[in-house]
Write a protein that binds this DNA or RNA. Structure first.
Lengths: 102, 102
DNA sequence: CCGTTACATTATAATAATATAATATAAAAA
DNA sequence: TTTTTATATTATATTATTATAATGTAACGG
């Protein structure tokens, strides 16, 4: 007999998933991730694209890096950020598919 | 020429989407929605399944109803809640697929 | 070396979310 | 009618998030 364990699975990963969702659930962070979906960006580029303060952008990027959503590498004096996680990429694509059409 | 407007789309719907994501990004609410994915439930059933207080469950259900994530109908003295939105159903399924396996 | 650019860090005040408890209401059972 | 069950509402203390500003640092150009 095959038990349905999907609820157990969601119970077990609930806290982890919620951290990720919480990170997504901010207009600026979601927008940043939307831009990163199209390619890596420097902090300055993201500041320009999202009309946010440098401080706030930096804080949010560091938070998202800590949470494993983005990664960064140094390129000269620039810090270049990109999406770190394939699951996240698919999740953001789903969000865009479901909620960002028409 | 076809311009890529997905970023504009996500900018436009960002606030709306973020409300939904914010609602998802709480362990209890996500768990409730996971249970509702498998069928309608009364408040009491959800309280039992999720080990939450009646008050908190009621508050969260009302919030999610207000936000359009769940719907409810009265059945005798029971209030029966279900998932209200097909997009939400697909989103929760994606979350489970990506983050609740292995 | 000095200034500038790019980014990070720290501090703090304002706001929002959460847990909890107490009370209220409405339907059904006794 | 009184009691119980099921759910909703209100109030409040605690904690977390957020915006903002100010300062720090490291790399590069002149």
């Amino acid at each position: 007999m095959r038990r349905d364990v999907s609820i157990n699975k969601i119970e077990n990963s609930c806290d982890e998933v919620c951290l990720i969702l919480k990170s997504l659930s901010h207009p600026l962070r979601l927008l940043v991730l939307g831009h990163l979906l199209k390619g890596s960006k420097t902090v300055g580029e993201l500041v320009g694209l999202c009309e946010a303060s440098q401080s706030q952008m930096s804080q949010f990027l560091i938070r998202m890096k800590f949470e494993g959503l983005v990664s960064s590498e140094k390129d000269g004096k620039f810090q270049v950020y990109s999406l770190a996680d394939k699951r996240l990429i698919r999740l953001i694509k789903t969000i865009q598919d479901e909620y960002c059409r028409g």
